[in-house]
Design a protein around this nucleic acid. Structure first.
Lengths: 228, 228
DNA sequence: TAGATTGTTAATCGATTAACAATC
DNA sequence: TAGATTGTTAATCGATTAACAATC
């Protein structure tokens, strides 16, 4: 019964994160240069990744594999990646919390390409309710469960403040949502069958800032040593 | 000379990501319950993390450590975390690309708490230039280098489309920026001394969607087996 | 004291990287 | 053929988890 959480369909989360980067690179490369075949080492060099890592990732998704000396057919590789990533899946998602971050996600065009479509939003703020953002209706929060159940929606996005996030989460779960993308900076408690992915914007920037701070501290020390 | 990239000031990236979660939990707990001391095991239980992991993380940031049987002083622990994370650093950042994502980041209140402040934005779109978003001026892109140099800004945020990202990145580097938070879904080439942190919204959602898809596929298989 | 909790050392686990035989 | 590239097995590396002695 126990599943390995970091593996999904035999593929690691890390690989899954790299695939769209390859995909974007390949599409662009193809469009610009019309290259027909490409090798793992050349991708690795371009994206500054390890050769073996790229080879393994590609081996993971490629149906027919590559040919020694030639590499992979670009168009075929792109197709295999899209298939693997579920570009054609058309999963529907709802968003709760039409604040500035919610608005940005509603307006963001990049999701549909990956097979996920945000179909509507919910908010408790009367001024936002019944407006359209990014072409999607913002509905009153009370209608969440009804709509999600009727439309059989399995993905929920939480962009409400921390204090209401758990409540929103509970309603999403009650409405049958199985996967939650959480932007509130708190830990959500959910039943075992529900997936939660946390995304904390502030954390990312804080980490970057901390890195910079430490790097510059080390830099100053080096400079000092050199001055001696 | 070679540095371990995943370590910064002796702390791993993973730990750095967990610290703000502890911080938020502690502040909230303190505010709500007025608890004076807290133990690593109780935090671990609440946040569904491993006990040892929490203990190690806390040992990393805590100045005076905890007392056996008692645990940590909550207020002290909060202070140590803030100190460690650089809440009081007041790093300045600029953002390039005032599209919907850029707007959301400009309006987001959560960054300043972590010691980072976005002070202005740049865009090439004449309709956006000289407006204010989230209280911050949007200036013409041509003024980027001048302003960044004069204000000695070291953090840049890229929220432009993929095709202009490398160009924007080059300008930021030329302007003296040392750390870049990149939302464009491409690999940026930068000099060795510049830190790049990639953030791809679509990838996160794609990964979640893929997980869900696989989980449901497995679920269906189980159901089938049970049906037999 | 007894026992909860700390801090640390050792074992495990996963992901990355290196090494290499197979092959076009 | 020779050599670039693939796919895979083994070694390394980091992060997580387990075990345990120290201590209040």
């Amino acid at each position: 019964m126990e599943e390995k959480k970091h593996m999904v369909g035999g593929i690691s989360r890390k690989t899954l994160e790299r695939l769209p980067i390859y995909h974007h690179y390949l599409e662009h490369k193809l469009l610009k240069e019309g290259t027909e075949t490409i090798s793992a080492p050349s991708i690795a060099a371009e994206l500054q990744l390890n050769e073996v890592q790229v080879r393994k990732d590609l081996a993971m998704v490629s149906r027919n594999g590559g040919k020694p000396k030639m590499g992979y057919q670009v168009t075929e590789l792109i197709k295999d990646m899209e298939e693997f990533l579920g570009y054609h899946n058309n999963n529907q998602a709802v968003l709760v919390g039409a604040g500035s971050l919610g608005k940005a996600l509603l307006s963001y065009k990049g999701f549909e390409q990956y097979g996920v479509k945000i179909v509507m939003a919910f908010d408790t703020d009367g001024r936002k309710v019944n407006t359209k953002i990014g072409g999607k209706m913002v509905l009153p929060f009370e209608m969440l469960e009804n709509h999600c159940q009727r439309m059989n929606i399995h993905i929920g996005i939480i962009t409400v403040p921390a204090q209401s996030a758990q409540d929103v989460c509970d309603h999403l779960v009650a409405a049958g949502v199985r996967a939650i993308w959480n932007f509130a900076p708190i830990h959500l408690s959910v039943p075992e069958h529900v997936l939660v992915q946390n995304e904390n914007m502030a954390v990312s920037l804080a980490a970057l800032s901390k890195y910079l701070y430490e790097a510059e501290k080390e830099g100053r020390q080096h400079t000092k040593e050199e001055d001696d």
